[in-house]
Simulated assay, not measured.
Amino acid sequence: MHPSFIKANEEKQRSIINAALNEFSKHSYDNASTNAIVKEAGISKGLLFHYFGNKKNLYLFLFEYVLDKYAEATFAELDLTEPDVFQRYKQIISMQMNIVQQNPAFFNFMKMVSIEKSPEVTSELEKKQSLKEEYNYDKLLTDIDYSLFKEEIDTKYALNTIKWVLDGISSHYNLQLKESNYDIDVFNTLINQCTAELDEYFHFLKPLFYK
């Protein structure tokens, strides 16, 4: 975290974040300009580097910020009283679609992140995303009803299988989205197709795992 930035007033924070999102959504990490960011944000370059130290720290902060906002929006609406893990996954897919539609700036930024090639940031992006996903996965499983599973089923393997199926389907549709150059209309179509296919797999898996 960057304490000096967090202490800045909300309007200044918002201006910097929006300017950085705009610049990094248009350009790769290497080609993005901090000069353009400070100009749009209406601050000095010295102040930007006072907050973040360098462009890399700003970029990684922005990445974590967007991931956190996605997670916050998801878990704010997720019904943790729903005991069925299959239903929880369905909720999350629906919420992710809504979040993307409501926050096109986030979508455009993550689009560029997904094709980022700069060795200065790619390994750290992967580490940060992996940690966030692990934390969110544990949170997703809060208070699910393990008694729904057949007694002879190892719930750890069952949950891993469900997650691997979801990851595999998501990867398939993410590849199609990438080939479309991340067109938002294509995203909406693909997310509906993904949801329908996921329903079919869940329909197949439920009788295998549940009583």
Rank of each mutant, 00 (worst) to 15 (best):
H2L: 09
H2I: 06
P3M: 04
S4I: 12
F5T: 06
I6E: 14
E10F: 12
E10V: 10
R14Q: 13
S15Y: 15
I17M: 01
L21F: 06
L21D: 07
H27V: 05
S28E: 14
Y29T: 02
A32N: 08
A32G: 12
T34R: 06
T34A: 08
T34K: 11
V38E: 02
A41K: 13
I43G: 05
K45L: 07
K45Y: 05
L48M: 04
L48N: 02
G53N: 10
N54C: 07
N54F: 08
L58Q: 10
Y65I: 00
L67Y: 13
D68E: 15
K69R: 13
L78Y: 01
L80A: 04
T81E: 14
F86I: 04
Q87G: 05
R88K: 05
K90P: 05
S94G: 00
S94R: 13
Q96Y: 13
N98G: 12
F106E: 06
N108L: 08
K111C: 02
V113S: 02
I115V: 13
E116Y: 11
S118F: 07
E120H: 06
K127Y: 13
K128D: 07
E133Y: 15
Y137T: 09
D138W: 14
K139Q: 11
T142V: 15
T142P: 08
I144P: 15
L148R: 14
K150H: 00
E151Y: 14
T161E: 12
T161G: 12
W164A: 07
V165T: 03
D167A: 07
H172Q: 12
N174R: 11
Q176C: 03
Q176L: 05
L177V: 02
N181I: 06
D185G: 00
T189N: 08
N192W: 07
T195F: 14
D199Y: 03
K206H: 04
K206M: 04
P207L: 05
